[in-house]
Design a binder for these strands. Structure first.
Length: 856
RNA sequence: GCCCGGGUGGUGGAAUGGCAGACACGCCGGUCUUAGAAGCCGGUGCCGAAAGGCGUGAAGGUUCGAGUCCUUUCCCGGGCACCA
């Protein structure tokens, strides 16, 4: 079973055991097992052409250790891997080379698979998934159809980020500081027809569900901030010119209504033209034009310095005091939030204050500061003043009262707003999941609606050249809708994807019952259900496939459902999810949203997909800065494996520091753990490769060594559960250092130690286990139990302090009394001088630890 | 600006309010060797010959006792950023 090398030849040992595991399918997870399940999930990688980055093995080693440990503890462990393989780089490569992105993607996957296998992770390779496989994305499309049917998908022409360089639209989240996240190219605003998912319908649930999750607090808070719930009121102001109607605003501080001295509309607000007086027309229009021409980045950076705005010439009436207040437009008010209009209360809002100062608007105070200060703007606690009917109330109470009073008068109501926006779900790209949607005429849609039961309550439509088009979903049986071959992967440049350039795919006769289609250029087939249709040319964003992959692992081959309900019940959701903090908001929020929809549909039994989440930290270059090609400080896993072996790499990655910490790579450090593994080898085997002569079947280990062994079992187990691998490794080092000093060691002790080592350095552990006569695979043996009795010592070291200062220590019986300990202390040669001539005031005695003598 | 993390030897880092610096890197000395490498033994926070003193970004506080708890403050990293 084992190899026959005489030295620790990891280049021979590691592939040997990897082959062994593969041939024995050692890590297969069983559906329907009677064992308790444990599901430990890695964020699956995008298989880039650059190959694995050192950050991948960091997180993957962490989960692998846990997976191997849990298997040894008797769990049926699901530990899968797959490929998030749709994505822009493959498409850009295709544009450049003209080869199909699928070909490039498969090459990259092959390379990733080879690299990951060389790291010896205990994945169940029978469950590998690939988001670009039609058998996979069929279900991505299916889930989209469920969202569509539920009214959670719609189309909207809206300004979106357009990147001329990438020739595609980007989501807000993909734009960083006015540049594309991928490539760093400049972006601009354009109006395009887009698919949008109504994630805002789940805002409250997404916020509420965070409470019970075992996630890093920082990540929870980031999601909270992203959802951005705020409670306030919508208030309607009459306009002075009655025929213009009302102006609705949102405020979180209705209690400051008496302090409102002007109103501000977003420049894009639809009421602006009607509100603008003849005298102000020119100024208002110029301002609107200027705002529209600015990118959001310019708008933000400029206005961060200085507020700007223009008076419209109109006035509104403050509903609480009848005051006539001017209506302005300014770009510090955003159309996309609330009603796109605000009441300005300059005394109690920093932005309004700044604006009022700039344009000389009145700033009356309506909240008295709790601390009596009179500086403005004031946004702290206090009581209401200058507000007849509410004076003297603490402002949160006034807020409730005024909101209720407004509601009673029918001019306002309490509302909740969220910063969260609906999710822009389409991309003008080739390399993504096609939408299983066609566009048909109203008449054809009505005919389909008469027989189809899978349409939304409200049809999804858009108007094109004055004609209303209706979105008709493909029937389930027509899935997957695959990508057509194209001549060029270059986007059309007009905002449509390359799919718009494939007429035979694009323009079809479609049977709305079966989803069957023929090119429109051919004659219409016989039958009533055939309608003229144009396919949706957008594709889905990369987030789509990663929104539900953790479910597909449960039952990856299933052709009739995304997963068998029995598998969904047995495995449930991951018990642990490990991945980078860079996904704190987007992926993790989108996946939660989809999961909640699937939960509401009764497809999954849990409301949340990821109960326990952990972010591994970033590994920096040797120089303490982020690894990058340009800096030349990149560490390549392949090179490390070649020089030290994957066991050393795995161990070092975990020994570097706390898993969640950002920490620099130190090339000398890996030699330290490599040395440790060599030492383990030498303690087990002699120079001839046979068991070391000091290994004995007859000699009993010293109690101290056994105690250390049991401490090691205990500490390793506890640390693994808590993902504190650095300290468990140091404990194993302490143990092996003790073995080294012992003249003899029992075979049983070494075998037990190898079991503890196995999750961390599985190849070496297997090899030594076999050579020391252990049966079968070390990973298949039940995790050793520590004996609590062995952890006790009859004698313990007690520390003597005088006035809190360490003055000496002494080995004493563990159950020594305070009196006896004091007797030892007062005669202790290093302690006694500090007691001389002093009187003892009191003593603090902590058994087994400390005796602190307080003297005058 | 706001919200999170975090500051401990030359380095990475340990430390349920109870011996600060485990473990490892590096360095110094020794051993083995013709020599080196590897291994092994010993040392290694700072000041001091020693006794002892000082030490966890800084300053206060609570406590018999603080790296750990509280207040203020500085620095570094991350996220958000006109969301009314």
């Amino acid at each position: 079973m084992a190899t026959h090398c005489k030295e620790y030849d990891f280049r021979q040992i590691e592939p040997h055991w990897q082959t062994f595991w593969q041939e024995n399918r050692a890590f297969r997870a069983e559906n329907g097992s009677a064992k308790p399940k444990f599901y430990v999930l890695d964020m699956f990688p995008y298989p880039s052409g650059a190959g694995l980055h050192i950050g991948h093995p960091e997180g993957y080693t962490a989960t692998d250790i846990l997976a191997r440990y849990k298997r040894a503890c008797g769990f049926n462990v699901l530990h899968p891997i797959g490929w998030d393989a749709f994505g822009l780089p493959a498409e850009q490569h295709a544009v450049k080379t003209g080869t199909h992105p699928a070909a490039n993607t498969q090459n990259n996957i092959t390379n990733f698979r080879r690299q990951i296998k060389a790291l010896g992770f205990s994945y169940d390779w029978d469950r590998e998934v690939d988001t670009t496989d039609p058998r996979y994305f069929r279900w991505t499309q299916w889930i989209f159809l469920q969202l569509f049917k539920k009214g959670l998908a719609y189309v909207d022409e809206r300004p979106v980020w357009w990147c001329p360089e990438l020739r595609t639209v980007l989501a807000n989240e993909e734009v960083i500081d006015g540049k594309s996240e991928v490539g760093g190219f400049p972006v601009e605003r354009r109006n395009l027809r887009q698919w949008v998912l109504r994630i805002t319908a789940y805002a409250e649930q997404l916020l509420d569900g965070l409470k019970d999750l075992d996630w890093p607090e920082s990540t929870k808070r980031m999601q909270e901030a992203w959802i951005g719930r705020s409670e306030g009121a919508e208030v309607r102001f009459r306009l002075a010119d009655e025929k213009l109607g009302d102006l609705a605003i949102f405020t979180t501080r209705p209690d400051t209504l008496f302090g409102c001295t002007y109103m501000v509309l977003a420049p894009e607000h639809p009421l602006v033209p009607a509100l603008t007086s003849a005298a102000q027309k020119e100024a208002v229009e110029a301002y609107r034009r200027r705002t529209a021409a600015k990118s959001d980045v310019e708008r933000m950076s400029e206005s961060a310095k200085e507020k700007s705005g223009v008076f419209t010439g109109s006035y509104a009436i403050n509903p609480v005091n009848g005051a006539k207040v001017p209506v302005w437009i300014a770009d510090y008010v955003l159309m996309g939030y609330g009603t796109g209009a605000i009441m300005a209360v300059p005394a109690h809002d920093e932005r309004d204050y700044e604006f009022a100062k700039q344009y000389d608007l009145p700033i009356p105070r309506v909240i008295a500061a709790a601390d009596g200060s009179d500086t403005l703007p004031y946004v702290g606690d206090g009581t209401v003043i200058n507000s007849p009917g509410y004076d003297g109330l603490p402002w949160p109470e006034a807020k409730k009262k005024i909101t209720a009073d407004l509601a009673a008068k029918g001019i306002g109501k309490g509302t909740i707003n969220y910063k969260l926006r609906d999710w822009l779900f389409s991309r003008q790209r080739y390399w993504g999941e096609p939408f299983p949607i066609v566009w048909v005429s109203e008449a054809d849609y009505r005919r389909a609606a008469a027989v189809r039961r899978d349409l939304p309550a409200q049809p999804v439509t858009f108007v094109e050249n004055g004609v209303t088009q209706y979105a008709l979903p493909l029937p389930d049986q027509a899935l997957p809708l695959t990508l057509p071959e194209v001549q060029s992967y270059l986007p059309s440049g007009t905002g449509e994807s390359p799919l718009a350039n494939v007429p035979d795919w694009l323009e079809v006769w479609l049977d709305f019952n079966t989803g069957a289609s023929v090119p429109a250029a051919q004659p219409r087939p016989a039958g009533d259900a055939w309608v003229r249709a144009r396919r949706e040319t957008n594709t889905m964003p990369q987030w789509a496939g990663s929104c539900w992959y953790y479910l597909r692992y449960l039952d990856p081959q299933n052709a009739s459902a995304l997963a068998d309900p029995a598998a969904l019940h047995y495995w449930g959701v991951p018990d642990l999810y490990v991945g980078g903090a860079e996904h704190a908001v987007l992926h993790l929020l989108y996946a939660r949203f989809w999961h909640k929809v699937l939960f509401d549909l009764g497809i999954v039994p849990q409301a949340e997909p990821f109960r326990r989440l952990f972010h591994q930290g970033i590994i920096l270059g040797e120089d303490g800065v982020k690894m990058s090609k340009s800096r030349g400080n990149v560490v390549n896993p392949d090179d490390i494996i070649q020089s030290y072996g994957t066991d050393s790499l795995r161990l070092y990655l975990m020994f570097l520091g706390p898993l969640e910490a950002m920490k620099p790579w130190n090339p000398k450090g890996i030699e330290g753990v490599h040395r440790f593994l060599h030492k383990v080898w030498r303690e087990c085997l002699g120079e001839d490769g046979q068991p070391n002569p000091k290994v004995s079947d007859t000699v009993a280990d010293a109690p101290e060594l056994l105690k250390l062994l049991h401490e090691t079992i205990k500490k390793a187990g506890e640390d693994i559960e808590a993902l504190r691998y650095n300290t468990s490794i140091s404990q194993m080092m302490i143990f092996i250092n003790a073995v080294q000093k012992a003249p003899q060691v029992s075979r049983g002790t070494l075998l037990t130690f190898l079991q503890v080592l196995a999750p961390f350095a599985p190849h070496l552990a297997e090899e030594l286990w076999a050579r020391l006569g252990g049966a079968g695979s070390v990973g298949h043996h039940p995790w050793p139990q520590y004996d609590p009795a062995r952890l006790q010592n009859a004698m313990v070291k007690i520390v003597f302090q005088v006035n809190g200062k360490h003055r000496g220590d002494q080995l004493v019986p563990a159950d020594i009394t305070q009196e006896a300990a004091f007797e030892i202390a007062r005669t202790h040669e290093r302690v006694a001088p500090h007691l001389l001539g002093k009187s003892v005031q009191r003593m603090i005695f902590v058994p087994k630890k400390i005796l602190n003598i307080v003297v005058s």
